[in-house]
Write a protein that binds this DNA or RNA. Structure first.
Lengths: 342, 342
DNA sequence: TGAATTTAGGAAACCGCTTTCCCAAAGACA
DNA sequence: TGTCTTTGGGAAAGCGGTTTCCTAAATTCA
């Protein structure tokens, strides 16, 4: 018989007390709780009754120790306070909690060391699996991690060797859609502010842009492309630089909404009227895309759906569920007021 | 001697193996790890060496079970994907992780049942403490929770009976600052769109507004106040309703930035030019406040500072730290371009 | 009616670490 | 030299469950 434990003025019941109260054995209570073996109906009811009366909850720590599973999943995102990743976190959390798993969220800050620290931290917490939106970790690192037998799931990243763990947006198609929209509006000279070219998604978006141009029989001019870093400032800097190159353009595609926002502010400060003087398209459809003026035409990124799918993959892989999984998601164009006929 | 445990192809070392490798006893390793008793320097080095060579990490689950502490803190916020709460989560997470605690984040959705579920969930996870930004739980519920000996910390809420656990903004002063700013610009007729009057912060902001008017010798007209619900739509609806009342006003205070944004969009659709036709002030200084056009003059809410302080309080209370704690924070006015002289 | 199958109880090992108790060895001090 | 204080070892209990093994009783089936 275990001694009663007093925590403050409240007593936390153990499984032994449930067994005693129900007048059954320990094994029986455990069988009822885990439903792994059949139990006489009357006995089961007595156990359930005792659980209710004692307000018993199995101690999750003890349970974790016994079956070496914590029912927790680590999540790595670049930032906790950026709306885009907020959608991701929200999707992952609600999907996993619906199955009684909890998620431990950490920020990677687009920094290799910080990301590694975060992963170490999550491992030290004995997470059952990791979901990562990593910007800095190398493919090799991720492959090693995977061989550790710690299941991982990657959002917005394709790593050779992890075919089923990667969940992505079709970025190339997104870039294509943005530029095709402008072409359809009659624009011929289209400038482009890209994301950093060491990021795969940025390269794919640019690739899509180029494909649309080629398809329309237009020869792309490298001088109409500015290489930005996804930041709002680089949107402004990019626009100034492009204009300084003295080539005409009536439309601008930005590889994300932040740069589009920066370009819009800059254009207004230059006295341009939008969208008459310049049509602008963004990418991601983040929350403030319809707060900028004019409301931003952009490419939607269903990051919540992608994130949910990555969580379902983990549920399948680690917790024996059998959800249907889709790896690649389609972007779509959201037309608002920042683009207009040429 | 414990048997070696094979997980996949990797072996996770235990404290016993560290002891064996270092040629010392179990107790010594534990003493080194927890630093609670002095250990011979040479021995300590041998232990550290063994830990390094084996790449040993103490199993946090076993440790939790043994000392009934999980080193985890539950966090309840209204939404995981709203920038304002993102700042809060970010502050709490980084403060706690710096001390090797992890946080489990849950969303309350401004719904009593959801908030209770979230709290139950966090309790079932054996959190050492709870930090809450609760919108729906009653004071009584919170007081009960606290008596459970589960330490709690409240952000943006004052509960009688929990004098030291509450961390808030001086909302009344914020409301006062917003309106005084407009008065100083020469406005006499100032409309106000309030937050829901069952929320204390909303009431306090309104109270501050009224105090500023009185101080300026202006008799407030109840007809110039619209009772909103903090949503963007209610900002638009509020403006329309106020204008329909056919009383002149040259300035508008909104009790948060969302409603200010709604009012701005609405005003523009009505063909008003801002800020010439109407000066608008918001509240909270959320991330997109400088993305709206004109850039929003608003009252800053240092939610990250407040959240960090609530985390420090928990560090003190539960983990024996001794940070200095401040309970109430001052708002400040951020003047941008949405307000202009009358 | 007898044999085979379920069903439940009791005991014990185990998960990996913390903590306590007691004892032996070594160093400090008078 | 003898006593007092550190320091470290060894053993064992405990945290609260899960799981396995064995046995006894109850039920089913031929």
């Amino acid at each position: 018989m275990h001694l009663a434990t007093i925590t403050g003025c409240y007593h936390v019941p153990t499984i032994y007390e449930v067994a005693e109260k129900a007048g059954v054995s320990l094994s029986t209570v455990s069988r009822v709780l885990n439903g792994k073996a059949s139990v006489n109906k009357a006995l089961k009811e007595r156990v359930d009754q005792a659980i209710k009366e004692l307000n018993y909850r199995p101690n999750s720590v003890a349970r974790s120790l016994a079956n070496s599973r914590t029912d927790s999943v680590g999540l790595l995102v670049p930032e906790l306070n950026v709306p885009f990743y907020g959608d991701l976190m929200q999707a992952v959390e609600s999907t996993l909690r619906a199955h009684d798993k909890h998620v431990i969220m950490t920020a990677g800050r687009n920094c290799l060391e910080t990301e590694k620290d975060a992963v170490d931290f999550l491992i030290s917490r004995n997470c059952d699996a990791l979901i990562m939106y990593s910007e800095s970790l190398t493919d090799d690192y991720l492959l090693n991690l995977n061989q550790t037998k710690l299941p991982i799931s990657l959002v917005n990243r394709n790593v050779d060797g992890l075919p089923e763990a990667c969940f992505t947006l079709d970025n190339e198609k997104g870039g294509y859609l943005a530029t095709r929209h402008l072409l359809e509006l009659g624009h011929k000279n289209i400038a482009y502010i890209s994301g950093p070219n060491n990021k795969v998604d940025a390269c794919l978006r640019l690739k899509g842009h180029k494909r649309a141009l080629i398809e329309a029989g237009i020869v792309g001019n490298p001088q109409l492309i500015f290489n930005g870093d996804y930041s709002e400032e680089d949107g402004a800097i990019g626009l100034l630089e492009l204009m300084a190159r003295d080539l005409p353009f009536s439309a601008l595609v930005c590889a994300n909404d932040w740069m589009a926002s920066g370009a819009i502010s800059c254009a207004r400060e230059l006295g341009m009227s939008l969208p008459q003087d310049l049509s602008i398209v963004g990418f991601d459809d983040i929350v403030f895309a319809h707060h900028v003026f004019p409301r931003l035409t952009t490419v939607s990124n269903p990051v919540a759906d992608i994130a949910e799918m990555s969580a379902r993959y983990i549920l399948n892989k680690v917790y024996g569920q059998t959800n249907i999984v889709q790896q690649c998601f389609e972007p779509s164009l959201v037309v608002r007021e920042s683009t207009i006929n040429f």
